[in-house]
Amino acid sequence: MQAFFEDLANDFYTNLIAADRWKLLLQGLGVTMEITILALILGLALGFLTAIVRSTHDKTGKLIILDAIARLYTTVIRGTPTMVQLLIVNFVIFASISVSKVLVAVICFGFNSGAYICEIVRSGIMSVDEGQFEAGRSLGFSYAGTMVHIILPQAFKNIVPALGNEFITLLKETSISGYIAIMELTKAGDIIRSRTFNAFFPLITVALVYLAIVILFQQLWKRLERRLRKNEQ
């Protein structure tokens, strides 16, 4: 029993403390968060934009070309693996242009997330009763004004849980960035594994870090949801 704990302490030391390996993980975590947050911002912008284009087309029949582009975009992104998209963005689109790898990942994951956020926002807009739209228009609001003041605030409230989910999905999905030589959290753990020849410690640590972030985020998000809901009862 004692030997077991001694081994554990030893492993802990070699995998996390020696050669400041914990710093490698911390740096990796920083890169993971950077990619996730920037990609989420890009994804939200793209997602809202395409969702508004698509709903406007559904409601008014206008924006035919933009709608076709938006539909193509969401179909292609949602119909192919993220991993393949990452490789294509890195080795095809940015093959001869030298930009930072992190930027490549942000663009890839941002566009990827945007397609899913588009569907989320679209379902949010559709979930708002048609009568709300008519009430806005009958008061004299323009189409855009009705969207901004009446439809989107209600749609947003409806999709807050789904948006939280999207953040979690995105966070975990960035773990494939190692394939284009980005030192994010998962890659950092894997590098430690290859140096210490110990798989258990670095990989479990990495998993726990992801888990901790997700749980912490879920708590914060639940609080936000509750606050938004209270605003209406």
Binding site: D129, G131, Q132, E134, A135, S138, L139, I150, P153, Q154, K157, N231, E232
Partner: peptide, 12 residues
Amino acid sequence: GMVFQHFNLFPH
């Protein structure tokens, strides 16, 4: 002005 059967007040 317009008044609807289902009121259509803004719930938010």
